[in-house]
Structures are given as structure tokens and as C-alpha cells.
């Protein structure tokens, strides 16, 4: 046994884990106990902060808002990307390669660059603080990568499959829905995860385009929340734990897909 590598991994894991543990442990302490002892375990765990977070703050509303944005933009972007990727991968038409190159190049535009013109446009046409306007932006931001991934995948499907379907008299839409998509569950699942995480975790677009309190997302909500309850640290930590819970649970249950999705999202 070599002790040094073990020790190094132990230390790294401890550092990676400490903030999450601190969040969970502190959420279970009373305000007085936290003031007296900031680092120890709680003597008598209290669940009151979680009760307060769940019932006295708009956290469910924020989650519902985030969920609406995630669902809307993921579905819209998938629909648009599947259709286009099918045509780009499997049909001949003028401008096909130019469209694909352009769409792929847009993967790399930093989102912050788009906020000025979109904000001015949305102020003009009244789309600030609307779900539909924000969904459109998120869908646009995640679509270039979705098209890229789907085109690369669709191109790997064997040509025989398509020839057979065409001989059977299937239309292109039928081929897409009955032949291609059932074979594409893996890339589609990756896209759902990458895109959902991007939208769920985003703060920049959320604070700019959803200024109405009733439309706040989880991430925008907690950024405000910590300022308001600055001195009630256990309460704040309970809020963070609730906000982090969906992702933590998904990670622990679907670790492999989740890791693949996060990696794909990071390198897109």
C-alpha cells in the first residue's frame, strides 16, 4: 500500500465535499447554535429552517418558473434541432453545408454578447419578463450544439435503414419519427441533460430577462435570497440545500448520464 496517493485523494475529496457538508449540517442547526459553534455537528438537529423555506418563501414558485423555462426551451430546441439535423444529415439541398457550418460556429458565441441587442429588442416588443421570450433565448442558445450532436449521430446510421423505409413508401417525417428517433435515444438523452442543466443553472439571462418577482427562477431567487437573510445563515443554507437537492439527487441516481451530459455541455 502506498500511503501518499491515498492521502492526496483523501485531501482532495475532503476539500470537494466540505462546502456541501457545511451547507447540510448548518441547515440543521438553530440560529443560536450556529453562532456558538460554526463548525461542529448539530447537537439536536432542527428541521424548522426547511419548513420555513418550503412554506414561507417563494421557493416552489421559483422552481416552477425554472421548470417551465427548462421544459419549454428543451422541447422547442429538440424539435427544431431534430428536424434540421435530419435534413442536414440525410437530404441534399443547396446551402446545406453552409447552414451546418454557420450553426456549428454559433456554438461558441458567449451568451453575454447577446444580452444588449436582445434586451433592447425585448423592451421594444414587450417580451421582458415573459416566459415565451426567455424560452426563445434559451432555446436559441442551446440549439447550435444540439444540431451539431444530432447531425454527427444521424450520419452514423446505416444507409440501408433509409433505403428500406423509402421502399416501404415512408415519408421523411415518418422515417424521422419511426426509424431515426427510436435509434437516437442516447444522444437525445444527453441533449436533454446538457440543455436542462444549462437553463436550470443560468443566472445571467434570468436576472436580465425575468425581472418580475413572480417570474424569478431558482438561481435568481437564491442570489437575492442570500442578501435578504444575510444574518440567518442556517436558514440561508436550508434554502441552498433545497435549491441544490434536485441536481444532487439526479447526479447520485443517474451518475453516468449526468457526467456525460455535463462534460458535453462544458466542451460544446
Amino acid at each position: 500500500m502506498r500511503p501518499l496517493p491515498h492521502l492526496a485523494l483523501m485531501i482532495a475529496s475532503a476539500i470537494a465535499l466540505v462546502p456541501t457538508l457545511f451547507m447540510l449540517v448548518t441547515a440543521l442547526k438553530s440560529q443560536d447554535e450556529y453562532q456558538a459553534d460554526k463548525t461542529g455537528l448539530p447537537d439536536a438537529p432542527v428541521l424548522d429552517h426547511f419548513r420555513q423555506i418550503l412554506f414561507d418563501t417563494p421557493v416552489f414558485l421559483w422552481m416552477a418558473n425554472s421548470l417551465i423555462l427548462v421544459a419549454g426551451s428543451v422541447v422547442l430546441s429538440l424539435a427544431v434541432s431534430c428536424l434540421a439535423a435530419y435534413a442536414i444529415a440525410r437530404m441534399e439541398f443547396r446551402g446545406r453545408d453552409a447552414l451546418f457550418t454557420l450553426s456549428t460556429a454559433l456554438m461558441a458565441v458567449p451568451p453575454v454578447v447577446l444580452i444588449v441587442p436582445l434586451f433592447v429588442l425585448y423592451s421594444q416588443i414587450g417580451l421582458i419578463s415573459t416566459y415565451s421570450g426567455t424560452i426563445l433565448i434559451y432555446a436559441g442558445l442551446v440549439t447550435p450544439f444540439s444540431v451539431y450532436l444530432l447531425v454527427t449521430f444521424f450520419r452514423t446510421l446505416p444507409q440501408d435503414l433509409f433505403d428500406a423505409a423509402i421502399l416501404d413508401g415512408a415519408s421523411h417525417l415518418q422515417i424521422l419519427f419511426r426509424v431515426v428517433l427510436p435509434l437516437s435515444l442516447a444522444p437525445v438523452l444527453t441533449l436533454v441533460i446538457v440543455n436542462a442543466l444549462f437553463v436550470w443553472n443560468d443566472l445571467l439571462m434570468a436576472v436580465i430577462f425575468l425581472q418580475d418577482d413572480a417570474k424569478k427562477t431558482v438561481m435568481a431567487g437564491i442570489a437575492v435570497f442570500q442578501g435578504r437573510y444575510n444574518n440567518q445563515i442556517p436558514l440561508t443554507m436550508a434554502g441552498m440545500a433545497v435549491a441544490a437537492a434536485p441536481m444532487l439527487i439526479l447526479y447520485l441516481v443517474f451518475q453516468r448520464h449526468f457526467v456525460r451530459g455535463l462534460m458535453a455541455g462544458a466542451v460544446k
Binding site: 443553472n201 443554507m237 444532487l248 447526479y251
Partner: peptide, 22 residues
């Protein structure tokens, strides 16, 4: 260790930042 070491990337930045700030 692999599961734990990837954990920081799973948490959303605003959540981590609030926890770290405290």
C-alpha cells in the same frame, strides 16, 4: 473519490457561491 471529486461541478454556481460566501 471520482463521485466526490466531480461533485463541485454538479452544484450550480450561484448555490456554491452563496455557501462559500458564508
Amino acid at each position: 473519490h471520482r463521485t466526490i471529486l466531480f461533485l463541485p461541478y454538479v452544484l450550480a454556481i450561484p448555490i456554491i457561491a452563496v455557501v462559500m460566501k458564508q
